[in-house]
Simulated assay, not measured.
Amino acid sequence: MEFANYRKQPLFWNGIFMAGLTIAILPLLFLDTRTLLGTQIWIKPLKFTLSVGLYSFTTAWVMFIFLNDWKYSYRTQMILTITSFIEIVFITLQAARGEASHFNISTLWNQIVFSVMGTSISIFWLFHLWVGYQIFRKKAIPHSVKESLVWGLGIAGFAMIIAFFMTSPRPEQLESMKQGIFQTSGSHNFGTGDPGKEIFFFGWSTKLGDMRVPHFFGMHVMQIFVFLSAYLMKKVDSVQNQITTRFTGILFLLITVFMVIQTLNGESVFHLNPLYTSLYGLFVILILFCFFKLIAQPEKISKQVIV
């Protein structure tokens, strides 16, 4: 897609904004020595700008290539852009204030921020699913390409909704609220005890369950499937490719589901549990086999145009 076409996509400019904000935040990692809950205060905004920027660029490509004739394409991109923009603005603003953006209900302002962020991301999720549905019902897309896109968008949608496990207040938090003490509501951690060492930059626990891991993994599996769909456009569309892509999607979904189960059981995905570690290893081997099968397929003799 030429740059002239990119300029017409709101999500493309959202990605550009996120890239610019990422560059602006980077020096603050070294200039601002403040920490929050033991983590450098600007790491969280940086993680979110990178994540939203990657989502924006890949979704802009998907919608231009496959949904350019959809009458709601521009408006849907605008809603995805505005809702994600609201999320990033509040996360960055709270970081500048030295306050947590998520789960923070310690003041009226923090409660408003947390509520608005939850509302905006819920709207974002609904329109993300709508994009996936439009891809699913589009008949002109080659079967294997559509299979890849639907699985990528679907798993990302599942990964977004599991974030609500984190926002549910814990029993001890509910007790505090009954006593008129408002500090936090929800947490990304599950389980009790020693959290162990954190994963560098991401801050994920190596012992306790951390729902951010399957949330992040599932959301960015989408990019793998978008790249795969671009690759499959060059291949002969066949039933074998479609079935192999579907099997790949099932495997990635199973990994995400088992990550959620392990996390809810209070155990980190990075903890070497024989059962879960064996399952993840098996799934990865099967995924690599599927990728090999797809790569080995012949390319198309003539290019097809997706309308």
Rank of each mutant, 00 (worst) to 15 (best):
S205A: 14
T192H: 12
Y280M: 14
H271P: 09
F227Q: 02
Q240G: 04
F201N: 11
V221F: 01
L264W: 06
L254Q: 04
R212Y: 04
G196D: 07
Q240Y: 10
L286S: 12
F202E: 15
H220T: 06
D237H: 02
L275T: 15
L286C: 13
V226G: 00
I255H: 07
I250F: 07
F217D: 02
R212C: 07
K234R: 12
T263H: 07
N241C: 01
V257A: 03
G191F: 05
Q240F: 06
E267W: 11
E267P: 13
E267G: 11
T248G: 00
F283I: 10
W204T: 13
M211P: 03
E198W: 08
G196K: 11
S229W: 03
D237F: 00
L275M: 14
L228A: 00
I243G: 00
R212D: 07
E198P: 10
T206I: 06
F200M: 15
F225P: 01
L275V: 15
H215V: 10
Y276C: 07
Y276K: 11
T277G: 11
G191I: 05
G193H: 05
Y280P: 10
S268A: 15
M259G: 15
S205E: 11
D194V: 14
I261M: 13
G266R: 13
Q240T: 12
L282T: 14
F247P: 02
S278W: 12
T192V: 14
Q242L: 06
T248A: 03
I250Q: 02
I224Q: 04
I243Y: 03
T245W: 03
K235Y: 00
F252W: 03
K235S: 00
T256A: 12
I261W: 14
L282D: 12
E267A: 12
I250T: 04
V284T: 15
L228T: 02
T248M: 03
V213K: 00
